[in-house]
Amino acid sequence: MADARDLVDHHVELLSALPGVRAVLLGGSLARDAADRWSDLDLMIVAADGVAPADLADAALAAVTGADEPLLVIRRESDHHCLLNLVLPPWTRVDLSVTDDQRPGGPRMPLRQVYGEPLDLTPPPGDTAVDLDGAAAVITQFVRVYGLLPVVLGRDDLVTSVQGCHLIWGELVKLCLLIDPETGRMGALSKAQRILPEHRDLLLALPAIAPDRRTILAFHEAAWSALLAITASGPLAEADWPPERTLQQLRSWLQQTVGLTLALPGTTSGSGDASAEGGVDDLPGDGEAGGRGR
């Protein structure tokens, strides 16, 4: 990030002059010494006792923007916190977080104090286990969306069909990010850099999404194969899948309605599965209650 130090110093000088500011903290990639010329500026203001975060946020916004009208302001607030996402000319992204928490920090925002009396910051956690519950939720979302594919195509609803493809693509990205718990403390624009190279190749090799039946089916087939590959080894291999009966039912439903054959976890292709020729009424029993659906 060009002139990052000057940018930090300029904003800290403006904010530290405001009444009611106990401390200013630097977060994000600048705090981690990982910034580049495209990084934004993440600052947290700790309010003094008795100062409302919303009021201090108003003053901070006025100080930072000065006479220049911001290009964009997004504001979110609660009783003890106010967040301002700003875009300043020419296109400088600044996130201002104002809190009355006197021990700020935590897993999502490693902080470095740049103004005020020393605070007792909450440290980020140490080693964090892979979020297997989150991975299971992504897999369940896949099954749900794939089950809707015959419905939207049967109605010739290409708008929703394309929307579903983008949803699946986003869930695949989310799944890849769950492998690295560190991404939970990063901004959205930094996370993709932490995806494993082999998974990035899978994501980028997915077919283009277009509003016609053939390419929508091709995308779903490739995305499902990517899901199986991503969960076949490594920490995500322990993630739970829906019960085997659910997966078999989904497979038969898609075969009969749209001609799409899905492989199941632990198989290399759909053709080798014993139920490939069976209809919905011919499926086996409930199978396992959970696990990987085998």
Rank of each mutant, 00 (worst) to 15 (best):
W241S: 05
C82F: 00
R5E: 14
V130Q: 14
A67I: 05
H81Y: 15
V151H: 14
L236P: 13
L96Q: 05
S269K: 10
G66R: 05
V151K: 11
G259E: 03
L88R: 03
H11D: 13
P19R: 00
P242S: 02
L247N: 00
L96F: 06
L250H: 08
N85Q: 08
W253I: 02
D282K: 07
V94S: 11
S271E: 12
P107S: 10
A218D: 15
P207Y: 08
S78I: 01
I74P: 00
Q255A: 07
Q249F: 05
D282V: 03
A137V: 06
L96H: 11
V12A: 07
D49A: 15
R251Y: 02
P123V: 06
S97G: 04
P123E: 08
R76I: 01
S252G: 01
L167P: 09
L264I: 08
P89S: 06
Q113F: 02
L41I: 04
G164E: 06
S16Q: 14
A276Q: 09
V21L: 09
A274M: 01
L264D: 01
L15G: 12
D101A: 13
R22T: 10
G293M: 04
S190I: 00
H11P: 03
R185L: 07
E238S: 15
F219H: 13
A129E: 15
H11A: 04
L250G: 02
Q163E: 15
D9V: 00
H80I: 01
P90R: 06
Q248I: 11
A223I: 11
S78E: 14
G20E: 05
T122M: 10
T160V: 14
A136P: 07
A188C: 00
H81N: 12
L153S: 12
D49W: 04
R251W: 03
T268R: 14
M44Y: 14
A23E: 13
L84F: 01
D240I: 03
D282C: 03
P118M: 07
W169C: 10
A47N: 10
V159F: 15
W38M: 01
L132M: 12
W224V: 03
G27Y: 03
P235G: 14
T261P: 00
P125N: 09
G126A: 13
P123D: 10
R292P: 09
P89L: 00
